[in-house]
């Protein structure tokens, strides 16, 4: 029997919702794929047709949250004073969308969040690519031209570090993460500015 695309999507959504509930109730480590399948009313084998691992469920959830953030983000916002502020808004919006899964993000450090991974398992380009596309557009908007792969790599390392810090941030309402984000972006944009200036100087006859 062929399963329609709608049914597939509904099953997939049900698995994600079940996983989210179980992670919240009993924690990520204590939740097994068998638990998730049982709660979603599907056979354990069926679950693996959708998600090969538990990490893949978290990755998919994160991808969805960040896609929502990208869609909601106003790339053309004109009331910001610079790249740093625009990037801050973009990352902060992503954090808000990821809030429910904050504590589970370390599960992705060696997979989707790793700077070395370019594709999520069976799930198209990694969430990294979608995020970096926005970063590149914002850099161009603020006059930094075409952003280098080194700069993007640096950005992603800072971003992955920020998410790791955030996942374990015990400060009130995770306010220390906001301070860290401010500092990280200040460093990144400063580096971009100096590096750009240095490149311009080198290119001069």
């Amino acid at each position: 029997m062929r399963v329609s695309a709608e049914t597939k999507q509904a099953t997939r959504d049900r698995i994600l919702r079940s996983a989210q509930r179980l992670f919240a109730d009993q924690g990520y480590d204590a939740t097994t794929t068998r638990d998730i399948a049982r709660t979603a009313n599907i056979a354990a084998g069926t679950l693996f047709n959708y998600f090969p691992t538990k990490d893949a469920i978290v990755a998919s959830w994160a991808r969805q949250a960040l896609d929502d953030a990208t869609e909601a983000f106003d790339l053309e916002a004109s009331d910001v004073s610079g790249l740093e502020e625009d990037l801050f808004s973009f990352v902060a919006l992503g954090l808000r969308k990821l809030k429910l899964m904050r504590k589970h993000l370390p599960a992705l450090l060696e997979t989707s969040l790793s700077p070395l991974v370019t594709h999520d398992a069976g799930d198209g380009p990694s969430l990294r690519v979608a995020q970096l596309e926005v970063v590149a557009k914002l850099a161009a908007k603020h006059g930094h031209g075409e952003i280098s792969t080194v700069a993007l790599q640096m950005y992603w390392s800072l971003y992955a570090g920020l998410l790791t810090f955030w996942s374990q941030d015990e400060s009130r309402k995770q306010e220390d993460t906001l301070a860290l984000l401010d500092q990280s972006l200040n460093m990144f944009v400063g580096w971009l500015r100096n590096n750009g200036a240095a490149r311009s100087a080198t290119n001069q006859p």
């Binding site: 009331d79 910001v80 004073s81 610079g82 740093e84 502020e85 625009d86 801050f88 808004s89 902060a92 808000r96 309402k173 995770q174 306010e175 906001l178 401010d182």
Partner: peptide
């Protein structure tokens, strides 16, 4: 900057 401040208000 405004983005940080607005985030503090939301938070």
């Amino acid at each position: 900057h405004w983005s940080l401040l607005a985030e503090m208000v939301r938070n």
